[in-house]
Design a binder for these strands. Structure first.
Lengths: 111, 111
DNA sequence: CACAAGTACCTTGACAGACATAGTATAACG
DNA sequence: CGTTATACTATGTCTGTCAAGGTACTTGTG
């Protein structure tokens, strides 16, 4: 991984919600997908991922169910809820604003 | 403040270093400057600011000296060091990369 | 067949950065 | 003369990330 975790901090939830917006998924798959999408520049640590799931489910932004795999390890699938979708939209807005603010504050040419 | 602190997390040091790049400054002034630059959308909490100073000084990225105010409260001024400048440049690069990665991961239209 | 590697999930405890709260001290203003 | 603004400090809490360790099943390899 090339960037530090503090820069990604606070985005984990949004990243997960985004993945679930496309379709239900499970931990391992989500993480693989993230690695692919970023061409290996970023991966969620397992502990981070699963603690995010717990947090998101506790606050009602996602819900989960066990898959009915007849073979292989069991998978816990997650679904984004209505309030999860709202939260995603809000987080995206917040991100766009934060991006602007941070740029203003740290860009060299400054204003 | 409109954006959450987790989104700003990890940028505090860079924001401070950026301010000191222009000229030596002190805590209160830096914070005021941030509020102005962001038109009130962001301010560092005092505890955050001063603990960042301590951290930056301990790691040699800034150094400090007491101002010789003949009036008003005493001010502790901070100067950015050589390694502070390098760190600033590195953090800026990291930010540009992180920005790209996060956008890829959370933007609606996806990839 | 034994064993490594890959898939898939979970728990515990530690750490660091942001922050709330509270305190000290001086100057300016009405 | 009390409030507001300036200016800094110290202590303790909270939360997200992560390291480390564990369980369990499947597939490939020699």
């Amino acid at each position: 991984m090339s960037i530090t975790s503090d820069l990604l901090r606070g985005h984990t939830d949004t990243i997960i919600l985004k993945q679930l917006l496309k379709s239900d998924s499970y931990g391992y798959e989500i993480n693989k997908s993230i690695q692919e999408r970023t061409r290996g520049r970023y991966e969620l640590k397992e502990a981070t991922l699963y603690s995010a799931f717990r947090r998101l489910e506790e606050t009602g932004l996602i819900s989960s169910y066990w898959g009915d795999e007849t073979t292989g390890a069991r998978r816990r699938y997650y679904t984004i809820t209505g309030s999860g979708k709202k939260m995603y939209a809000k987080n995206l807005d917040d991100w766009n604003e934060a991006k602007e603010i941070i740029d203003e504050l740290i860009k060299e040419e400054g204003k």
